[in-house]
Nucleic acid binder design. Structure first.
Lengths: 341, 341
DNA sequence: AGGGAGAATGTTACCGTGACCACACGGCCG
DNA sequence: CGGCCGTGTGGTCACGGTAACATTCTCCCT
């Protein structure tokens, strides 16, 4: 799938000014120019001023490719996420990228979809760029890739998941616990009949299973479990509800794998004349804006994607700078009861 | 704002296997290994097979940093977008990144917010990485940056906009025309009183102005124009409607700068007991999923963000490979009448 | 049979920077 | 007053590849 572009003649340099030109104009050695840019406190003030003047005059722009080769630090992080079309991943990517940029790092984006092989391929491909760190979605499941990453001693931050044995650092929560907590929440409200509408992705599956197990544990009835495509959309929620509507009883509690699914289910339920929450209670996941801002507002599980992205960036920076940080960081989740339960 | 990370000791190489190791094992020159990877048709089949065996045995992973320095081709594109939190930008970024990846290019992501100075800074920062091309949102407005980009002879694809004089290639449409078309659409439906709810971003402003001018041109009445924060959300649409609700007449046509704003306005209007579309007609912009999948479905302006991202990728690849492509590519937009007009 | 073209591979010389070590200089100490 | 240390700066070379040119060999044509 990753095709090499055809060979082409060499392109002239983007900007022809290089560090030696600056050095010549300022009357110093190239190394001193490099120090002015990278370790300014090791250069005397007058020299630094001369160098900066030369940089401005020539419009010098350092070549980070060359610098990266020489220093073996690319000042770049690679992020492999399934998609940025869902708020679940775009929110943490947004804050992660911002926070890394504030600290002089750029983020290379690789989209893996929901396919395991594609994720492995993307990880291999980005490693060829020698990133200073890797941001991954979910724990790495492929053993050879895990080995590769561990052996490389590269900072790896995995988000949105828990695992017994993370590759390096993992920031997330137990999705099965989320499903169980939602089941308990419904049970406390007196529900006895349940259903779920869930995306075909590993984390959504864990939530669905956690929900189902807890329902069974209470000895109550799971009327329907419908699995939808990933990433699942409002439309998936609507069509999902249409498909299970015949299976629902007088009073059912529905767990949607994301707020988009929940919103779709809510929309469709009302069109069918089903009273929410009296006949159908609905709880989503993710606390996306839509669940808060629609009417009636949808009960959901709050998890702070933006916060996770920022934490991931801090962990990444700490690891890059040699700090030893805990291997697993639990992020709290919280059920937000609103009008649909 | 872009702080350099503190200096650190050199990191050991990610993978210690280099091209010379492969060459030694295969009994060929390093250059031949390079050719096997980059121009396989210039290597005899038996030699290529030996080299590939050596690559597999050693687990060799090429270093694109080194290759990029030597060849002056980074096989990387930098994308500067305001945010990926809005479907407006995440949709084209998704398809752009996918399409570039299929062709062996990675995408470096830089988020500029809606601040001009930040965009300039981000462009300068990413240029230090010597990308093979630049994807920008909207035409570059800063003259020194334009000059820099033009002089660098770098493929630059600007999307989501039109301009008399694009930096290189521009893919988009005239936002003022969109506003005018929406006004005409409302007028054809017999509307005489209008309002707009619009984000504080340059392109939304153009749509709003185009709308207002066309309303004035028809000699009709613009009751309210409310400017919201960017990127504007459902909540902005709701609070915006609350703020203008007192100004609205018996029958008003409202133009929202995005479907999120329109959805918020719709939600709030119904809570106020305003009949949609009889008392308040609403048209959004963007054809996001929410406008299609909510109830009642919201009339909107369809523009295909995913298509734009893919076109941008094709243009980018064509330019990188030396093709001369047209400077301006007009993307059609289309008003989709649904239940709110 | 000689020579020229073209294919396959090797050799050399960088690409632009930063790590490392050498070195000059001034001040402070015993 | 000599040696020692710290600061500021310069010189050299390696980082890991690839472009460009050189070389070898084969095959085919005249």
């Amino acid at each position: 799938m990753t095709t090499r572009p055809p060979a082409r003649p060499t392109r002239p340099p983007l900007v022809s000014v290089k560090i030696t030109d600056v050095a010549a104009l300022a009357g110093v050695a190239p190394m001193t120019v490099s120090r002015v840019l990278n370790t300014p406190d090791r250069v005397s003030a007058p020299t630094a001023a001369r160098v900066r003047a030369a940089i401005d005059e020539l419009g010098y722009m350092p070549n980070l490719i060359a610098g990266g080769l020489s220093s073996r630090r690319s000042r770049m992080i690679a992020a492999v996420v399934p998609t940025i079309a869902s708020p679940m991943f775009s929110a943490p990517m947004q804050t992660f990228t911002d926070t890394m940029a504030e600290n002089g790092y750029h983020v290379m984006l690789a989209l893996s979809g929901y396919d395991q092989a594609s994720e492995d391929a993307q990880i291999r491909a980005v490693l060829a760029r020698r990133p200073d760190g890797l941001l991954l979605t979910g724990a790495v499941r492929s053993p050879p890739i895990r080995e590769l990453l561990r052996a490389s001693n590269l900072p790896v931050v995995e988000i949105w998941d828990t695992a017994e044995d993370p590759t390096d650092v993992l920031i997330g929560f137990d999705h099965a616990e989320v499903g169980a907590a939602v089941a308990d929440f419904f049970v406390r409200q007196g529900h006895t009949h349940f259903a779920s509408l869930s995306a075909r992705d590993p984390r959504a599956a864990l939530r669905r299973e956690g929900f189902a197990k807890r329902v069974a544990h209470h000895g109550l009835t799971l009327l329907a479990e419908k699995v939808l495509d990933a990433p699942s959309s409002i439309e998936d929620g609507r069509s999902g509800l249409r498909q299970i509507v015949g299976l629902l009883g007088q009073r059912t509690a529905l767990f949607g794998s994301s707020d988009l699914v929940a919103f779709g289910a809510l929309t469709e339920a009302r069109l069918h004349g089903i009273m929410v929450p009296d006949q159908l209670a609905i709880c989503g996941f993710g606390d996306f804006e839509i669940s808060r801002a629609c009417h009636p507002p949808i009960s959901t599980v709050h998890v702070d994607g933006a916060e996770i992205g920022e934490m991931a960036a801090r962990e990444m920076l700490a690891r890059i700078n040699g700090a030893v940080t805990p291997a697993r960081i639990a992020v709290p989740f919280q059920i937000l009861p609103r009008a649909t339960t």
